[in-house]
Nucleic acid binder design. Sequence first.
DNA 1: TTGCATGCAAAAACTTTGCATCATG
DNA 2: CATGATGCAAAGTTTTTGCATGCAA
Lengths: 132, 132
Amino acid sequence: MLRERGLRLTPQRQLILEAVHELGHATPEQIHHTVRQRAAGVNITTVYRTLELLEDLRLVSHTHLSHGSPTYHRAGEDQHVHLVCRDCGSIDEVDPAVMLPVTEQLQRDRNFRVDVGHVSLFGVCGDCKEQP
Amino acid sequence: MLRERGLRLTPQRQLILEAVHELGHATPEQIHHTVRQRAAGVNITTVYRTLELLEDLRLVSHTHLSHGSPTYHRAGEDQHVHLVCRDCGSIDEVDPAVMLPVTEQLQRDRNFRVDVGHVSLFGVCGDCKEQP
DNA sequence: TTGCATGCAAAAACTTTGCATCATG
DNA sequence: CATGATGCAAAGTTTTTGCATGCAA
């Protein structure tokens, strides 16, 4: 995909994409930390630049979970909806199919096409509901 | 509500809450700008601290729209779901009822309670779909 | 009068930019 | 070997913190 666009395949880019896959959901800083374990010299700047690039290529996607930095995750075929617990911060994933009734209705009523791979739903997870 | 918790009602807090209501969806900086038109001395620090407080009290809520600062909006009775266009940045609001099928299923299957007032759905609005 | 709230300044956290050097294709 | 990519340093943004002062109750 990189070469198609006249771009270069570098070790840094490979490592960063691998880290996103391994971590599931991670901030630029967490990704940087993971990459550094394999290649100590990689700069945080490169992480930011590469994440932006990978997002352009639709290889990763990001969402904002409550406060702080955005988190990046794999994108593409196996999209998923995020369930973010506002109490414990856990991130669960569900099949985007759960959104179908909503996306269809919004398509009909508002002519709005929801980007399902980008959805994060805030709330309270089962564990936290039991411990108020 | 403030007094119930032993907190104080100050002009700054009133103005900030008013600004959130007037603006609909606004970043801390936009809120600060609006508040300053009525009271020039109000500090951005106070805006941040007050928004956090008002969120605690469930009087406002925030969501993250793509990149940049979070946006704050009124919360409480008249909750709404946000439709954010990734192309033109417009923010539309819809009745949270559209989410009912999803929230019910997640409640059943995952024991996850969705905070409907906090939902933002990314996608492409009708206007932008016609102009690629 | 009490102590919560504010303003100010400074620090912290996060992200972007410019430029010389490196290394992919 | 041309030019896209990286590392470094520095600047830009956004948010948080510490502390003295101010003011609501």
